[in-house]
Every structure is written in structure tokens, then in C-alpha cells.
Design a protein around this nucleic acid. Sequence first.
RNA 1: GUGGGCGUGGCUCAGGUGGUUAGAGCACUGGGUUGUGGCCCCAGAGGUCGAGGGUUCGAGUCCCUCCGCUCACCCCA
Length: 424
Amino acid sequence: MPIPGIRGFKDILPEEAKRWQHIEKVARDVFRCFGFKEIRIPILEKTELFARSIGETTDIVEKEMYTFVDRSGESLTLRPEATASILRAFIEHGLYAQDKIQKLYTIGPMFRHERPQKGRYRQFHQINAEAIGLDSPTIDAELMTMAMHILSALGISGVELQINSLGCSHCRPQFRQDLQSFLGTRQAGLCPDCQRRTVSNPLRVLDCKVERCRAALEGMPSLSEYLCPDCKTHLHAVERQIQLFGVPYIINPLMVRGLDYYTRTTFEITSLALGAQSAVAAGGRYDGLIKELGGPELSGMGFAIGMERLSLLIGDLQKIEEEPILFVAAMGEKACVIAARIAHRLRLAGIQAEIDYEGHSLKSQMRRAGKIGASLVLIVGDDELARNSITMRDMKSSRQWAVDFNNDIEALVLCIGEEMGRFV
RNA sequence: GUGGGCGUGGCUCAGGUGGUUAGAGCACUGGGUUGUGGCCCCAGAGGUCGAGGGUUCGAGUCCCUCCGCUCACCCCA
């Protein structure tokens, strides 16, 4: 009996993996231009790290983490996001001692035990960027710009950048309290979810999609009116800067985030092409978090891009240039041996070379050569060997000719290299 | 955790009101061309019809249970 894979854990098959490689390559190149360095971090951390950073009462921590006790009795968790781990590493290795400013990125799998649906899996992959040690609103704008640039560099259009400010530790508590008491007076008109949210996470009511909730919330306190002068100034500066970068955006005062650590600037990049899970990227500022995790008093700002969602948006439009392929077809025992040697030598020269392994007919080998997209086929057989030559066939033009071959593979390989326009 | 839709060869799907050996296209293998790909033609191989139980002389088809996939809610990248 075959053993199936786990729900929500998807295989990325070769055809799609090719697209993923392309995505990563483009992203890495953008990071390089923006001065971000790669950091590679473990996928397991102590559970405590996520509980403290993401928030004890968030859905992620309460019911979505893959948490288990390992053989030494310690509670570990498969990371549900990357920020906490990056900050942990940043603190643990004292990176701030070399340079207070650290621009870091990582690409890899994250794990959340949610019900899978379009664009959402239990093991999913994120491209994650963090800019640590900067209070300047310019870095906020720069990060959002960079995220947008990665998307456009991948040929993705039709996305919307939404920005909001969640306030800081000075102004948000008052808003939360006032919102909560306001919601208390409107319970009857709210959907069951929002009635629950009133207690657990009142800010979430802001972006409820249920129509009748919208109506019941007439006259509700507005977050933007509660922002303290510093937060207001910061938001305006972010706006000014992102306008200077020429990136279109909209301010969405109703957008909130699901992780507790966000302060001030938050953003989301959405696309209607994604279905219900419309966010392809999201992030924000987290000013108190590094200290909260036992590090220095430095602020930070970061974002994550969902790889699966990116892949959905790119679709099949992506024409990735293929390297040329050579197929060595062989007829007869001697020829098979020589074919394998030729292929081997070509491979060492950096050319993709394929052979037949099962003694198929020449017709069948030719069919296979065509199928895998070989541009050049070498035909080695009794006839050729008897005449000290091999046959070369250009698959595109169907032109074919004989090439001298006195059992001298090096000379042959030179000839092939010329034919394929490559250095061997 | 909740709800809708769907499970038939590797893939995409046909299979009125239950009836004999479950079909097609694509892909695969061989042949038509005793050594030549794509197009065409012929042949072949490949399926416990998601699983288990029930009704029936008889179940891919009807009933029940379970499992899986998928979309949506919740939540989020």
C-alpha cells in the first residue's frame, strides 16, 4: 500500500520547481540591489519564541502551530513565520555590534495547521525581508517599494498596495479600549464572529467583510483619529516618501494585522486573481519587538511574500529560456558504450546530454529525443563505426550529416561544441 | 473547527431511470519505414470505478459510514 503525503503539504513537481527557481533568482537579485543579505535560519525554534513575539492569544499561537515535545522534554515549534527566528539570530549573535543597521532576507518553508484552500497550505513558503535598526519612515517606504518591485520584476501586475498605521504603544491602547466599549453597544447588529472578536481581538472587527456588520458599525471610532502626533508624522512621511518612489498605493484605515507585534506602518499587497486569500505580501513595523525578545532597543520593519501565491500570479506566462539539450542515440552494444562516453564527456563540459538506457529502437530513441526537446542528436551505430564516423542531426532543420570519428572523443566534442555554439 | 462541490487507467474526463467482457482523448510501448523525432494510421500495455458496509438475482450507478481532494468561512503570506 502506498503511503500518501500529508494534508496541506504539497510536492513541488519539476515543472513548477522551475518556476520557483526563477522566482527565487529574481528576488535574490532585487535584494542584492537593495542591500539585503541572506540569512539562513533553522525551521525549529523553542515554542516560547513564537509565543512571545507573535502573541499568546493570536490564532497562530493558540491553534495553528506545529508544536511538540522533543526527546529531551523541550517544547519546540515548526516556525509559523520567519521574523521571530531572524530577530532571535540577530540578538543571539550580536549582529548589532558590528552594524546597528541590518538588512536581512531569508527564503524558506513555514508551517501552520490551518485548513488548506486556494493559496494556503500547511507547509508554505515565504520570501522574508527584515530591516533592523532604523526608525526612519524612509525604510518603511523602501521596503514596500522593494516588495512591489519584486512583483513587477516577475511580470506581475494588477496588484494593490494598501497601507495603514496601527499606532504605537502610546496611542493604540486607548483606541482599542474605546473601540471595545463602542462594540459593546452594538452587539445585536454584529455577526457572531464579530461578537466573539469584540472580546478576543476587537481590531479584527474593522476588516470584517459581512455586510450587516458594516452597517452596524456606523459611527465607530476611527483608528486614524487616535494616532498620536508622532505616529501621524511618521505615516505622513512614509506616504511622502513612497510617492517620491512613484509607487501607487492606497491608505486603508480598516486594514489590521494578525500578529500582535506590529506597530505603526503596516501594509498588504493584494490581488483579485488569488481568490479569497488575496494577500500576496504583507508586513509592517515592529518597534518594541527586539527588546521584548531580550535584545537591544532597536526598531525594525519587515515583510513576507507568499511563494505559492506568487506562483499562482505568474501562471504559465513565464517563458524561461531553456539550455540546449543533446541526445546520443545508439544502435548496438559497442555504440552504446561509446554513446555513454560521449554523453559523459559532454556533461563534464556543461552540456545536458541524454542517452537511451534500455536498448530501444532508433525510432523510439528519436521520438524521445524530440520529446525532451533535444536540439542536436548524435547517431552512433554499426554503420557509422564501420566508416569511422558518426551522424549528427539538427532537430530543428532535420538536416543531418556525417562527422569523422576515429574513436577520438575529444575531437568529436570540439566539433559538437562548435555546432551548439558553446565552449567545451 | 464549520459548510458547499468532487473522488472512474499516469493525466483530463464519458459512463439516461442499477443489467452481461467499464470506455475515449492525451501520455506510454511496439509496428507501418529490416537505422531516423514532430503529423498520420494500426496494435499493445495499463483500472480492486477512494475505502468499508448495506439493499438487490445483479451496484461505477441506490443507501449509510469513513477517508481524501477542492473551494469558502475562520485566520492569514
